[in-house]
Amino acid sequence: PDFTLHWNGITIHFKGIDEEQFRHLRELLDRGVSLEELEELAKELIK
């Protein structure tokens, strides 16, 4: 499924991740993950 997340004025689209992965990403963003960390995470998910 696809998810869209609005965070700090940025709209991020996640394609092909499951709800569990999306929930994990939201928790990280709510905790204050940096954009660099988010990019690293995205690379991991894409593999």
Score class of each variant (00 low, 15 high):
residue 41 L to R: 05
residue 28 L to E: 05
residue 21 Q to N: 07
residue 24 H to G: 05
residue 18 D to C: 09
residue 30 D to W: 15
residue 42 A to R: 05
residue 22 F to A: 02
residue 33 V to H: 08
residue 42 A to M: 11
residue 32 G to A: 07
residue 5 L to H: 01
residue 4 T to F: 13
residue 26 R to D: 01
residue 3 F to E: 01
residue 17 I to F: 04
residue 31 R to K: 11
residue 29 L to P: 00
residue 17 I to S: 02
residue 14 F to V: 05
residue 47 K to M: 14
residue 12 I to Y: 11
residue 4 T to L: 07
residue 46 I to Y: 04
residue 10 I to R: 14
residue 11 T to Y: 08
residue 29 L to C: 07
residue 13 H to R: 10
residue 24 H to W: 15
residue 20 E to Y: 15
residue 26 R to P: 00
residue 43 K to Y: 08
residue 3 F to R: 02
residue 22 F to K: 02
residue 33 V to Q: 03
residue 15 K to N: 11
residue 4 T to H: 14
residue 6 H to S: 14
residue 37 E to F: 07
residue 30 D to I: 14
residue 1 P to A: 13
residue 35 L to I: 12
residue 43 K to R: 12
residue 22 F to H: 01
residue 21 Q to C: 08
residue 28 L to Y: 06
residue 20 E to C: 12
residue 12 I to L: 13
residue 6 H to T: 14
residue 23 R to H: 07
residue 22 F to P: 00
residue 6 H to K: 09
residue 47 K to E: 13
residue 31 R to N: 10
residue 19 E to V: 12
residue 15 K to L: 09
residue 7 W to C: 03
residue 17 I to E: 02
residue 18 D to T: 15
residue 40 E to Q: 09
residue 42 A to V: 13
residue 45 L to C: 03
residue 8 N to V: 02
residue 35 L to M: 10
residue 5 L to V: 07
residue 40 E to H: 09
residue 43 K to N: 09
residue 9 G to A: 01
residue 40 E to V: 09
residue 37 E to C: 02
residue 30 D to L: 15
residue 31 R to D: 06
residue 24 H to V: 12
residue 24 H to R: 14
residue 17 I to V: 05
residue 44 E to T: 09
residue 25 L to M: 06
residue 7 W to H: 08
residue 44 E to W: 06
residue 28 L to H: 06
residue 41 L to T: 04
residue 24 H to S: 08
residue 47 K to W: 08
residue 32 G to K: 03
residue 4 T to V: 12
residue 13 H to N: 09
residue 38 L to Y: 01
residue 47 K to I: 15
residue 1 P to S: 14
residue 9 G to R: 01
residue 46 I to E: 10
residue 42 A to L: 14
residue 18 D to F: 05
residue 18 D to H: 07
residue 34 S to F: 07
residue 44 E to I: 09
residue 26 R to Y: 08
residue 6 H to F: 08
residue 32 G to I: 10
residue 38 L to P: 00
residue 3 F to L: 04
residue 24 H to P: 01
residue 45 L to G: 03
residue 10 I to S: 06
residue 12 I to P: 00
residue 5 L to A: 01
residue 25 L to N: 00
residue 14 F to D: 00
residue 24 H to I: 14
residue 32 G to S: 05
residue 42 A to F: 15
residue 18 D to S: 15
residue 33 V to C: 07
residue 11 T to Q: 08
residue 39 E to Q: 12
residue 33 V to G: 13
residue 19 E to I: 13
residue 15 K to A: 11
residue 5 L to F: 06
residue 2 D to Q: 12
residue 23 R to E: 04
residue 23 R to Y: 13
residue 39 E to D: 06
residue 15 K to G: 10
residue 3 F to Y: 11
residue 23 R to W: 14
residue 26 R to E: 04
residue 42 A to E: 02
residue 10 I to M: 10
residue 30 D to T: 13
residue 22 F to Q: 02
residue 17 I to W: 03
residue 27 E to K: 14
residue 15 K to C: 04
residue 15 K to H: 14
residue 7 W to T: 02
residue 6 H to Y: 11
residue 32 G to V: 11
residue 3 F to D: 01
residue 6 H to A: 07
residue 12 I to R: 01
residue 47 K to Q: 14
residue 25 L to F: 11
residue 30 D to P: 02
residue 35 L to P: 07
residue 23 R to C: 05
residue 12 I to H: 03
residue 10 I to Q: 11
residue 34 S to R: 06
residue 3 F to T: 01
residue 20 E to L: 13
residue 17 I to Q: 01
residue 13 H to P: 01
residue 9 G to M: 02
residue 14 F to K: 00
residue 9 G to S: 03
residue 18 D to V: 04
residue 2 D to A: 11
residue 1 P to R: 15
residue 27 E to V: 13
residue 37 E to H: 08
residue 1 P to H: 14
residue 35 L to K: 04
residue 41 L to W: 15
residue 25 L to R: 00
residue 30 D to V: 13
residue 35 L to E: 02
residue 29 L to M: 07
residue 35 L to N: 03
residue 47 K to D: 12
residue 46 I to G: 11
residue 47 K to L: 14
residue 5 L to G: 00
residue 14 F to E: 00
residue 43 K to H: 08
residue 28 L to C: 03
residue 26 R to Q: 06
residue 10 I to F: 06
residue 29 L to Y: 10
residue 3 F to G: 01
residue 44 E to N: 09
residue 27 E to M: 15
residue 27 E to T: 15
residue 18 D to L: 05
residue 24 H to M: 15
residue 8 N to M: 08
residue 40 E to P: 01
residue 40 E to C: 06
residue 21 Q to M: 13
residue 8 N to G: 06
residue 4 T to M: 07
residue 11 T to D: 06
residue 20 E to W: 14
residue 36 E to S: 11
residue 26 R to C: 05
residue 18 D to R: 08
residue 38 L to I: 14
residue 25 L to H: 00
residue 41 L to E: 03
residue 38 L to T: 01
residue 34 S to A: 07
residue 13 H to I: 15
residue 16 G to A: 04
residue 9 G to W: 05
residue 36 E to W: 13
residue 22 F to G: 04
residue 14 F to Q: 00
residue 40 E to S: 09
residue 17 I to D: 02
residue 29 L to V: 07
residue 38 L to H: 00
residue 41 L to I: 14
residue 7 W to Y: 09
residue 44 E to C: 09
residue 34 S to P: 10
residue 21 Q to R: 05
residue 20 E to V: 14
residue 20 E to I: 13
residue 33 V to F: 13
residue 42 A to G: 04
residue 12 I to A: 02
residue 32 G to Q: 04
residue 19 E to N: 08
